[in-house]
């Protein structure tokens, strides 16, 4: 069954990838339960759909903004709103203030991965005017994503693994499961990593590489992203 119901020609591999992402969102990790991971996606949706808070207005600082029984820590909700609506305003000091609220750096990396994926998948649906991907029920099992990677803080604010490649592809390397999710989306919506630098001429799907890079650069500029 298709993830999206529309007459628009959504490629089957893209449709499948988004369904796959929803399943992955429900997969518990060492840092976050299935229910918490799905709550991250739901909170991203709330942030995207509401009147924006100013960058300096943290949800946790507004009385009654966060439900008493919310399963996510206040600092995680602050990250979700700030990264969803004001990604270009983040500073290292802000990151350190989040970590000081008992958010483990690796758990933070996972949170960033989830927020970023939800922004991608839901903005795709919104852009086409189709219903967003349904979220699955939380997984009850204790099976978790495990990582034995050694990670350290070197080039980024966050800890990363000693992997090769552009810095942005290294950003989520502390949580390989989320890096894999990024790659799943990249391969169906952008350019497979193998062709990223080695092949600057081939088109992908219906777009030429020039068209792809123009959209990428314009969107990055609008988000005030220097990288």
């Amino acid at each position: 069954m298709s993830t999206y119901v529309t007459e628009l020609p959504i490629r089957s591999e893209l449709d499948t990838a988004h369904q796959n992402l929803a399943t992955r969102w429900a997969t518990p990790s060492n840092s976050w339960s299935s229910r918490q991971r799905l709550s991250v996606i739901a909170e991203v949706r709330r942030a995207m759909d509401s009147n924006k808070l100013a960058p300096w207005e943290a949800p946790s600082s507004i009385k009654g903004f966060i439900a008493n029984n919310h399963c996510l820590p206040d600092a995680a909700i602050d990250v979700i709103w700030r990264l969803t609506n004001h990604p270009g305003t983040l500073t290292k000091e802000w990151y350190e203030s989040i970590i000081s609220e008992n958010i483990d750096p690796v758990a933070y990396v996972e949170l960033v991965g989830l927020i970023a994926q939800a922004n991608c998948v839901d903005r795709f649906a919104d852009g086409l005017g189709v219903k967003r991907v349904d979220l699955p029920d939380p997984v009850a099992t204790k099976t978790t994503i495990t990582s034995e990677l050694e990670v350290t803080v070197t080039t980024h604010w966050v800890p990363t693994a000693a992997t090769k490649g552009p810095n942005v592809l290294k950003a989520l390397s502390a949580v390989p499961f989320e890096n894999e999710s990024r790659e799943i989306l990249s391969s169906v919506q952008y350019v497979p990593t193998a062709a990223l630098i080695g092949d600057l001429t081939s088109g992908h799907n219906s777009l030429t590489r020039l068209q792809i890079e123009l959209i990428a650069a314009r969107t990055s500029k609008l988000n005030e992203c220097f990288y």
């Binding site: 991608c120 903005r123 989520l172 777009l207 988000n223």
Partner: peptide, 16 residues
């Protein structure tokens, strides 16, 4: 592609 770069910008800026 545009949706993809709403993701990549957040990864870059969220991780420094």
């Amino acid at each position: 592609v545009s949706a993809m770069f709403h993701m990549m910008t957040r990864i870059a800026d969220g991780t420094g």
